[in-house]
Amino acid sequence: MSEAQALLEAERITKRFAGISALEEVTVEVHRGELVGLIGPNGAGKTTLFDCLSGKLRPDEGDVRFDGRSLVGLPVHRRARLGLARTFQRIELFSGMNVRDQLLVAERARHGGGSFLRDAVGLSRPTADEIERCDRMLDLLGLTPDADRPIESLSLGRGRLVELGRALMTEPKLLFLDEPSSGLDRRETHDMGTVLQAVQERSHTAILLVEHDVPMVQRLATRLYVLDAGHLIASGPTREVLDDPAVRAAYLGVGV
């Protein structure tokens, strides 16, 4: 492309599981500050693509470049420190901790590993500044009343919000969201969309969004990629892609 270099360039990613081809030469690009949607039927390979990009899975083939450097071979936590954050389709929270601590950990991790020596002399309690930042994030997501509750006691929908907050605490350059609205009702979904837009504008965070909630995708994403059975079957501006008959047939059905 002629413009500035893309933030994320994933080229010809291929991943197979014992005979099932989950991704076949999938190429995607995300530019700085952009909100891109990734949709496709169940089992199309969306989560697998996230896993390959974030480092959980090692793709069989393909190259991932982020912010000008290759990510090949980097483990998950190194990629996270470079500015890749994500949420999970099956919600992954730190059990045994309360809500605020989930964010505090992320905040601390953002600053790097934390030195064992500092620990050993007792210098690593959370600072007022860190707590303040966490509280602001909790407030943004409407989680303040739950701040001190153990994470296991949250309902599914509120757990999703905590997960989003945790990902945002790392101040990512690029955020992968895997069905963030599942478990939220329409209005909560709408609120989440508003938060995402705010984050995107304020911190210029790029977002790659996997969603089955088409209205949400429609509202937020400027561009779409469509995966089906591991193949990229369409990409382009949101409206155009959603009107594409192939996409309608594979994904939307007649109703929408």
């Binding site: 089955h212 994904y251 939307l252």
Partner: peptide, 10 residues
Amino acid sequence: LGLAPIVTED
């Protein structure tokens, strides 16, 4: 939850 629109219809 988690189903593609076409499957939800089904």
